[in-house]
């Protein structure tokens, strides 16, 4: 397993569990013993997470990545001691930033729910090997992250257009679409990961799945109104 295996979910889950700091140790950059160079992936992921933390009002210093070799025990000790004392200075997560416990857990829940979506939207950028330290701070810009959260896409099935063909439901990777024969399909917004699959597979002639950007999703139609009568074609 490589440091590139660290998932943003691991990071935010730790904060959601009340951890005050998260540290990731990777091998020295450009000294990968394989051809993976996964530490660059870890670095990229950390830079993204830090900006998201900033966006949430959390101090990004609570997340740190450092690169060192297995022979550098003393370096590791120094780094960890420094990190621990910095975290102690900062104080407990949320409280130190003036965010109430409830608000923090809401915010973290929201971010965690969006991780699959973020992975899809930032798919290309998350693979980029960052050239130099100078690029770190602005590799992901604050505007970019603000937009990421303000322009969140949602998917909605137009009850008028849905022909209950089940295609979207069958292709949904997380089983978020409630469906049955002759019943208008409905996306469970809580489980939806916004992967665009339903939008893609919905036959063009129906065009029932719509993308909603930065706006609320209409309430699902009640179960009793979902039956559709087949029109003659």
């Amino acid at each position: 397993m490589c440091s590139g295996r660290v998932d943003p979910e691991f990071v935010f889950r730790a904060f959601a569990n009340g951890m005050d700091g998260v540290f990731i140790g990777g091998c020295i950059l450009n000294e990968c013993n394989y051809i993976t160079n996964g530490n660059y992936h870890a670095l990229n992921m950390v830079l993204l997470c830090k900006k998201i933390m900033e966006h949430m009002g959390l101090n990004p210093e609570r997340l740190r990545i450092e690169f060192m070799s297995s022979g550098e025990g003393m370096v590791y000790v120094d780094v960890v001691n420094d990190f621990v004392s910095r975290i102690k200075e900062l104080g407990p997560v949320g409280k130190a930033e003036g965010i109430s416990e409830d608000e923090l857990s809401l915010k973290l829940a929201e971010v965690r729910k969006l991780i699959p979506y973020i992975k899809i939207v930032k798919k290309e950028k998350l693979q980029v090997r960052i050239g130099s330290k100078d690029e770190y701070p602005e590799f992901y810009s604050n505007n970019e992250i603000d937009e990421l959260f303000s322009d969140v896409v949602s998917y909605y099935i137009d009850p008028e257009k849905c022909r209950a063909c089940m295609l979207c439901a069958r292709n949904c990777p997380v089983g978020a679409i409630e469906s049955a024969k002759n019943q208008v399909h409905v996306i469970d917004q809580y489980r939806c990961i916004k992967c665009n699959t339903c939008y893609e597979v919905c036959p063009e002639k129906f065009g029932a799945v719509t993308k909603i950007i930065a706006a609320p999703v209409p309430d699902p139609i009640p179960v009793e109104n979902r039956a559709i009568t087949k029109k003659e074609s």
Binding site: C2, G4, R5, M45, P173
Partner: peptide, 21 residues
């Protein structure tokens, strides 16, 4: 597969899992 798990961390839906991790 060398078991580095990069693909696992990139997968948005959890479809890929690195076994044992």
């Amino acid at each position: 597969c060398k078991g580095c798990g990069l693909c696992n961390a990139k997968c948005p839906t959890g479809a890929i899992q690195l076994k044992h991790f």
